[in-house]
């Protein structure tokens, strides 16, 4: 806005209507600007190394050679044709409103993720769990849906069938569970917390004992952790004498995670000696 040299006061029509004449001019101090720019550059500099492209493979990675968890690559044993032919109809075909057992638990009863392995579990144990599902003493909506439609004969047949199947080798998921702690709990327990060793009831290889103590070895780790958490939280409460309720409640979730992944990594009975 050029000043009018020939007038002592500015003329109204020369004044820029958006200019506030009384607003003092306040330049941003150079120092403040310098500080802001320095901070911005410093911030960018901190993350500059993140912009390097991800170099895939090539460099020897000491981390890559340490397995995070034992991953057993299963060549799943193809089921004996006679076991498939003799299977109850429910197992592979379902009936009425009931989905086939194998559709969730796998063609060889090996389970999937948090769906448990049934192959090789004790017949009486399986039958008890099915009855508990039907009566909702054990809570699982999908299993209740199935079990409530089963007759006593269905339960007996299906339990006997799965008990007769060989224990498959599982493909285990990666986990960062502390397997050393899991092994300690499994083999020795934690008597500071009144927690007995798993082997004292479930067998020295976790293979299960009798009709009340199911195998833990080669069982899905997600399932084991899920059930231990269910006992700890009170969601599951069909353990005889509340044994598992008490044991699970005395362990931290981190410990339950550790022992689940350790137990699952153990080979089931009859695992190939060659491996």
């Amino acid at each position: 806005m050029k000043p009018n040299h020939h007038a002592t006061t500015p003329r109204v029509d020369d004044i820029d209507p958006t200019f506030e004449p009384w607003e003092p001019s306040r330049p941003i101090p150079i120092f403040l600007l310098a500080v802001l720019i320095a901070l911005a550059l410093g911030g960018v500099g901190m993350y500059l190394s993140d912009l390097a492209p991800w170099a895939d493979a090539g460099a020897s990675d000491p981390v890559a050679s340490i397995p995070a968890a034992p991953v057993t690559q299963a060549a799943p044993a193809s089921p004996d044709s006679s076991t498939v032919q003799n299977a109850p109809v429910l197992v592979h075909a379902g009936r009425g409103s009931v989905w086939s057992c194998a559709s969730c638990h796998g063609d060889q009863g090996q389970g999937a993720g948090s769906t448990p392995r049934l192959a090789g579990l004790d017949e009486t144990y399986l039958a008890k769990q099915l009855r508990d599902f039907a009566a909702e003493t054990r809570l699982n909506e999908s299993m209740h849906y199935v079990a409530r439609e089963l007759t006593d004969q269905d339960i007996a047949e299906v339990a006997a069938y799965y008990a007769s199947l060989p224990v498959p080798r599982l493909v285990l998921p990666q986990s960062d569970a502390d397997l050393d702690r899991g092994r300690m709990l499994f083999e020795k327990g934690d008597w500071k917390r009144n927690v007995p060793a798993c082997v004292s009831c479930h067998g020295d290889q976790g293979q299960g004992v009798g009709t009340s103590f199911p195998p833990l070895a080669a069982q899905r780790p997600e399932y084991l952790f899920n059930q231990l958490a269910a006992w700890k939280g009170g969601h599951r409460h069909n353990s005889p004498q509340s044994l598992m309720d008490d044991i699970a409640s005395r362990l931290s979730y981190r410990d339950l995670y550790a022992v689940s992944n350790y137990a699952a990594s153990l080979p089931g009975p009859g695992a190939d000696a060659a491996h």
Partner: peptide, 12 residues
Amino acid sequence: GARMKSRDWHLT
């Protein structure tokens, strides 16, 4: 797909 592999369950 890793923990519920039953097509029929999903349809229901």
